[in-house]
């Protein structure tokens, strides 16, 4: 298997008034061909920063401290802006978090679809564009594409809008789809439909996907592999099966407890108590130590390394001895 995307020791900080905010710290992440990889973590853990780095759409106060983002073997971070804008939308495309705000409210679907096709596929004829758009809308499960093309965003439901956005995203046959919380703003029933659609597209179109989510349930049903992120670091990674059935890191264990508890109606949701550390003034030890039920002396003093075992990895002192 060859990696479509390989992020190597990526570190990113934001310049803020209070100092450097270390949003992403030494992150390694690989996505193989046709693979769906999930990046799981709570808000503020750095997931979106990773996604924005891949597309190089970081805000101006972001500083790339270190690392490479290899896409098909080429480092995107060293690329000229002009070349990068050719990759955006063509080889890497994006499915947004909130479909309701992701379309221009004053242009109809056809205009927005055709604008994209014109710039990214060089299709200038309106009829040809309409043909392609109708075919793509059909492929994402829209029953009456001709009618939908004439509509404006406010005339479509959230799920329909997300389907339209997915159709636009796959229109250029990208190699990689970055989906940042693609279902979190949708109703539960629509969520699973959109997730199924993304899985279906992954199979049919043969593209790889980075799925960013805070919801382990979503990750479980969609991904081949999971990376768990906490306070800017990867704390655990492995196959979805292994991570769900045999989680190693105490944070992952807590997340899974939570995910399953929320299924039981009477179960009191045991939130992972405490707050993630301040990313401007990081503790010297393990970043999870203040919330960890299994923490011991060493955890507060030293920072654990990411221990690698095959495709599995974990950043916790509980597993340091076993690897040595």
């Amino acid at each position: 298997m060859s990696a479509i995307l390989a992020i190597e020791s990526l570190s990113i900080a934001y310049q803020t008034e209070k100092g450097l905010l270390r949003a992403v710290d030494n992150v390694d992440l690989r996505i193989e061909d046709r693979e769906i990889v999930c990046l799981v973590g709570e808000s503020g853990s750095g997931k979106t920063t990773v996604a924005n780095t891949i597309l190089r759409i970081l805000p101006p106060n972001a500083i790339i401290l270190d690392g490479r983002v290899l896409f098909e073997g080429v480092d995107l971070l060293n690329m000229e802006e002009e070349d990068m804008s050719k990759i955006r939308g063509r080889k890497i495309n994006i499915v947004p978090q909130n479909p309701s705000t992701a379309l221009n409210p004053i242009l109809n679907i056809e205009t927005q679809f055709c604008e994209f096709l014109k710039h990214k596929k060089g299709i200038r004829e309106r009829d040809r564009c309409r043909e392609i758009a109708i075919d793509l809308l059909g492929r994402v499960g829209i029953a009456d594409p001709e009618r939908v093309l004439k509509l404006y965003p406010h005339q479509l439901s959230g799920g329909m809008k997300q389907r339209v956005l997915i159709a636009i995203a796959i229109s250029t046959s990208p190699r990689l789809l970055v989906a940042d919380e693609p279902t979190s703003m949708l109703d539960a029933t629509i969520q699973s439909q959109i997730l199924d659609l993304l899985l279906d597209i992954n199979r049919r179109e043969g593209l790889s996907m980075l799925l960013i989510t805070h919801d382990l349930g979503v990750a479980m049903s969609a991904c081949n592999r999971i990376y768990v992120m906490y306070a800017g670091e990867i704390v655990e990674s492995g196959s979805t099966e292994r991570v769900i059935s045999k989680p190693l890191h105490p944070y992952t264990i807590a997340l899974i407890d939570n995910a399953f508890l929320s299924f039981k109606s009477q179960g009191i949701k045991r939130a992972v108590s405490g707050e993630p550390p301040n990313l401007i003034d990081l503790p010297s030890g393990c970043r999870f130590s203040s919330r960890c039920p299994m923490a011991f002396d060493k955890c507060v003093k030293e920072r654990p390394n990411l221990v690698q075992r095959g495709i599995d990895s974990v950043r916790c002192f509980l597993y340091h001895d076993a690897s040595a």
């Binding site: 804008s85 955006r88 705000t101 992701a102 379309l103 710039h119 990214k120 636009i168």
Partner: peptide, 16 residues
């Protein structure tokens, strides 16, 4: 607004 950020992420030309 989100739709402008998305247009940038999709690599549409700035002028457009």
């Amino acid at each position: 607004q989100e739709h402008v950020r998305l247009a940038i992420a999709r690599g549409l030309p700035l002028r457009s």
